[in-house]
Design a binder for these strands. Structure first.
Lengths: 228, 228
DNA sequence: ACTATTTATTAGGCTCACCTAATAAATAAT
DNA sequence: ATTATTTATTAGGTGAGCCTAATAAATAGT
């Protein structure tokens, strides 16, 4: 039963998307987190959560002062928006030549207005890509999120080697820096140094002349995998 | 001085676009016409005209019960939106394989959210096309609307010949029919018959087996040119 | 266990862009 | 020139999604 289009507002799509992503990242979501991620006040989040939980088919399960989770309907919408976002990012990069630091913002605006047909044709033109330009997996047509068995770069020890799999997509400045030092999906790295107190890591990046030095606020959001 | 983005709402962009198009088509605009074109009530149009004329730099010149016209600012915004709309239509057709009857609706949603960079890259990828899929001229980067010395098909007399230049873009059913009978931009036609009372025209379309029979509600909105 | 701090919720307002109903102005018909 | 009809404007109202300020609940510190 496909969720129909144009049924939910941009705001609702944004809330569901961010709730899904926060749940995936840390297992729980707070009003405050949502407010920060969407750049609105907590009071507005409370209002929206109440509204979304009161919908005909509820989009979220909400118990005040306690948990927030997605209903199957809410999850479907979230995955749809995420699929469109990531497909569009890839499309902007491949078809229109956008740099990887510019695709996020543009995709964020487009994801709420494109039709099913647009989504379908983009997927076809790109040959059903599995990842967006930052390495995030693209949910399938059937809205299944591919498994990605990976861990944060921050958990690697000295001398460990791994492949970069995924980097955060929303910080343009960071993306420019990561590109410069070669920390991009697919890159092979080795941990040269790891400061035990502040967690700053120095990486050897294969094929790069310079090492990459990254603080924990970054390494916690960069994901790696051992196998190729 | 380029008009900045994101400064005006979708609604305002829509109003300015339709006012421009109505002014171009008939030289004047009524509240009622705008209301019908945008599918809102006349009262809403009055309200919006007042608002747009009260803007810091006014977007329209408005004298109640009398004329509506665009200020230079309003015209610039209108041309920008029209340029984006027509470029996107072309892009959807050429790059994503949309049929010509489906591009209008999709472009209408996209035109309000794409960035200047998106517009620029689409124009580059397409090689700065001059016309959209329905033959409407695309305003240049400098927001100049190319001249098109053409007249309505309805003004042709029996036995006159001409080339189809432009067809209306918003009616999907009509577009499917026009495609079927070969009345598409570039087609060469001859007026075989013209009923003097109801204005129904029968056309020979070069390269088509069947003649095309079109009523005045259509022939008034299809534009032709004598020279190739 | 009590107090301080953080986080979440309620209550009441605001803006945008629309609506309806009532009124007024412009235009057409007799 | 009245009257009838069409078109436009005003006045007041609605829902979405945000805001601030005040209050309540949960969490942390002593």
């Amino acid at each position: 039963m496909p969720v129909e289009r144009e049924k939910y507002s941009r705001a609702i799509e944004d809330y569901l998307k961010i709730i899904f992503e926060l749940l995936e990242a840390s297992g729980r979501v707070s009003t405050k987190q949502i407010a920060e991620a969407l750049d609105v006040k907590p009071a507005s989040v409370t209002g929206m959560l109440q509204k979304m939980s009161a919908f005909k088919p509820a989009l979220v399960n909400y118990r005040k002062h306690h948990s927030v989770s997605l209903t199957p309907e809410g999850r479907d919408i979230a995955l749809r928006v995420i699929r469109r976002h990531r497909l569009i990012e890839r499309f902007l990069q491949e078809t229109l030549g956008f740099s990887w630091d510019k695709v996020h913002e543009e995709a964020h605006r487009l994801e709420h207005v494109v039709s099913d047909e647009f989504e379908k044709r983009v997927a076809e033109v790109l040959g059903d890509p599995e990842f967006d330009p930052h390495g995030s997996p693209i949910p399938t047509r059937e809205l299944e999120m591919p498994e990605h068995s990976q861990k944060p770069l921050s958990e690697l020890d000295k001398r460990e080697r791994a492949y970069i799999r995924e980097v955060p997509d929303e910080d343009e400045g960071l993306l420019l820096y990561l590109e410069e030092v070669g920390v991009v999906p697919g890159a092979r790295i080795e941990v040269l140094e790891r400061s035990p107190y502040d967690g700053i890591m120095t990486l050897i990046v294969m094929g790069q002349l310079q090492n990459a030095v990254l603080g924990p606020s970054i390494t916690r959001r960069v994901f790696v995998e051992k196998k190729r």
